[in-house]
Design a binder for these strands. Structure first.
Lengths: 246, 246
DNA sequence: CGCCTATTTGATAGCCGTCAACCGGAGTGG
DNA sequence: CCACTCCGGTTGACGGCTATCAAATAGGCG
């Protein structure tokens, strides 16, 4: 099935979680939706809203964040194309956090009602949604461990590992290189550190030969050592869910 | 319907998320299960396992935690009776964290297969499961904000607010009193602090008149002030989901 | 060229961790 | 009944990691 609906990406991701049959795939591709373009840094959902549609990221990067009163921000998740940005709003009536685009991005907006209907009528699709939500939750738990119990070097190293693996979709080899889609301030908001300290920490990792940087390009000259420092175990990403690998 | 199956608690909780009909309730109550007793601090699920059953907490308290290599622990969630302790294991093949009992506890173990079957056959039950999982995820996001962006006083105050509200099941009034089900070490593991600093922080909150303590009993002499300090907004708990309140 | 944002760097302060000791209650065994 | 042990809680001294403040540099874009 080679379908060029913008939702093909969503189907591929869901299908990697659980085997969808052709009818399931067709129903997903036929979901009503409209594609919206967002400028870098613009908001998709704001806390307290009751959105009528769910957003699927098609192109670009996005994140979800919460604020405290003094203005500090905590990024609670990071998203790549194919990710559902607010599946939680399918069933919860009120957004408890903000969804924001990182770079400029294309997003498919699907009416809540259509998604709820497909989940109700197609148990396998509902299961795929559930798995997707559970992986999201698993990542959040790892982030909690990261922020709560690791020092700055480990936190940043761990986040870099995760971003690289998720963007690449597989385990990496030495010398891997990628473009970091976020600023140092945003790295800080994701790790519970200040941008100044992120800067020093990146410099420190670079001095140790664990990363190389030119602008926002990041290279891993020694993936094994970086992974060891970060104690990065990709199990929590549940990448190969369908294979049943543990 | 007054049923005294141990699972009645689960039904009540799910029914508070979405209106179940009598057939749904009956099917839930008829789920095969066996009730197991756990001594305080014993493990229910260990990271890396592939459990065949899901655990529903009936009596007592439990938490989920992850470890880093140096032995530090991060508690990623806290659970009260009626909570599903590892719904994520319904669909993910490998536990990515540990589930442990806090106090001595009774737990209903339900086979994965039976839960998956009921979710597949009863869309409303599946939806209730999904809502329950999303609320879990929402709490994890708030914890991430707590640990990443609040200082020790706020973190501890926020956690105390959450525990009190969840144990009581509603918004509190001034003078509320409850028994803290965890040690100071565990409070530390939940907030990313050391037990020593938890001790000092509790003492500090007490000195400010925000809490009173005798052994593990905690009282809120000034709920409004405590809530203000913690910036505690119970929205993220999605308590009154079914009413649609925001 | 000038403005604006992101990055970089230095100096200083403070929150919280670490280490160590002591206390107190609960349970155990003599 | 009392001594002992153990765990959880309490307290003090000290150090270090990270925040804060401030300023300089670099890069992107009009």
């Amino acid at each position: 099935m080679t379908d060029h609906s913008p939702l093909a990406l969503l189907v591929r991701k869901l299908n990697s979680h659980v085997a969808l049959d052709e009818t399931d795939k067709r129903a997903l591709l036929d979901l009503p939706h409209n594609v919206r373009y967002f400028k870098a840094a613009s908001h998709i959902v704001r806390e307290g809203e009751r959105p009528g549609a769910c957003a699927i990221l098609l192109k670009g990067f996005a994140y979800r964040q919460k604020l405290v009163e003094n203005g500090s921000r905590q990024i609670v998740s990071f998203h790549i194309p194919g990710d559902a940005l607010d599946m939680q709003q399918l069933y919860l009536d009120c957004a408890d956090h903000n969804v924001q685009v990182l770079t400029e991005a294309d997003v498919a907006m699907i009416p809540r009602s259509a998604l709820r209907a497909i989940a109700r009528e197609r148990p396998t699709v509902a299961q795929a949604f559930a798995i997707s939500a559970q992986i999201d939750a698993s990542i959040a738990r790892e982030w909690l461990l990261n922020v709560g119990r690791r020092d700055a070097r480990q936190r940043v190293a761990h986040l870099l590992c995760e971003i690289a693996v998720r963007m690449d979709g597989q385990v990496l080899s030495a010398g891997y290189e990628f473009e970091l889609p976020m600023s140092q301030e945003q790295l800080g908001d994701a790790t519970g550190l200040t941008p100044v300290h992120i800067n020093r920490t990146l410099k420190c990792l670079e001095g140790e030969g664990l990363i190389k940087r030119t602008k926002r390009m990041v290279q891993f000259p020694d993936w094994a050592a970086l992974r060891r420092l970060a104690e990065f175990n990709p199990l929590y990403l549940h990448l190969s869910q369908q294979t049943g690998a543990c």
